[in-house]
Design a protein around this nucleic acid. Structure first.
Lengths: 159, 159
DNA sequence: TTCATTTTGCAATTTTGTTTCATTTTTATG
DNA sequence: CATAAAAATGAAACAAAATTGCAAAATGAA
């Protein structure tokens, strides 16, 4: 369960999940039916988390990307968990990383404008007594933007 | 061209691009055929950049996520462009942000292990004379992981 | 208002995904 | 290494989804 062929399939669909199963089958040396079953199972197991369309922010316009480094006051678990949950519900927060080191969180935020960001900042950072300070890093350009995992490098861990 | 209905469609498929066009049609008040045509056009225009499956790193195992803050020596355009291109080709680099402020780049890196990261580090950072220094931030947990854009907040910019 | 253009819905068509079933392959066990 | 049970497979039938043609409706510009 979960072999080299599954890995090949993942490699293909993490780049383009609209690839017909027929085509995938050809590339990995299986019938379309077999591919379909494997994909189905990986969806059930949660190996495949979701299937999404990625929208180009440039084309849509009105988008500013900002990275935020967060420094917390207290590092009590409950407080941290509360923050995590809060972040999940905020649509402007695209990604939230809980990290080690001097700071505690890194956020990737997308907003229509700087004004909007300033507002958001008031709403979620200044209002929170757990947040000691935060650093705002304005993104000038995104040169790579994916959620791809480097499956080539995968060391076999299940058989 | 590009109206509120397109936005609704994007909102749906950026969460689940396997949603049948019939269902999308119902939600936005159009026939499946109309939805299909709109999606097709948005793909052609590049508004929809790509369609992908997202894989759960936890389930795959052998994955360590690391954020890297890069400080460059020279800020000459050619040098920066060279770096951007280099990063694109490296499969461990999932995301690359070119930023303002003290530092120049933020990278999201996924590797099978810390040992692998150390190696990567030698290969791409220490070898490069443009890179003054870099800060490694180890990710303990990812509490939100998407490429979704907050389309609710979109200010109409095209008619 | 009128004409040209665009967008739409419906129905037909095509493509893709899914299931069934008999067979093969794999795995575990004696 | 023989063999029985379990799992995975391909081919074909089937179902569901996407795509296209076409006439009608909506939209926009003059």
């Amino acid at each position: 369960m979960f072999d080299a062929i599954d890995q090949k399939i993942l490699k293909i669909i993490q780049t383009n999940n609209l690839t017909p199963q027929r085509d995938i089958g050809e590339k990995v040396g299986l019938s379309a039916a077999a591919v379909q079953r494997r994909i189905k199972k990986m969806r059930e197991l949660g190996i495949i988390e979701k299937d999404i369309a990625v929208i180009d922010r440039e084309k849509i316009g009105n988008n500013v990307t900002i990275l935020v480094e967060l420094f917390l006051d207290s590092e009590k678990i409950e407080k941290i968990d509360a923050l995590k949950k809060k972040f999940e519900t905020i649509s402007e927060i695209q990604q939230s990383y809980y990290v080690t080191g001097e700071s505690d969180f890194f956020l990737v935020i997308v907003v229509p404008s700087m004004a909007h960001y300033e507002n958001l900042t008031r709403r979620i950072f200044f209002g929170d007594e757990n947040i000691k300070r935060f650093r705002t890093i304005v993104v000038m350009g995104i040169t790579k933007n994916s959620l791809e995992l480097p499956l080539n490098l995968l060391i076999p861990n299940e058989k």
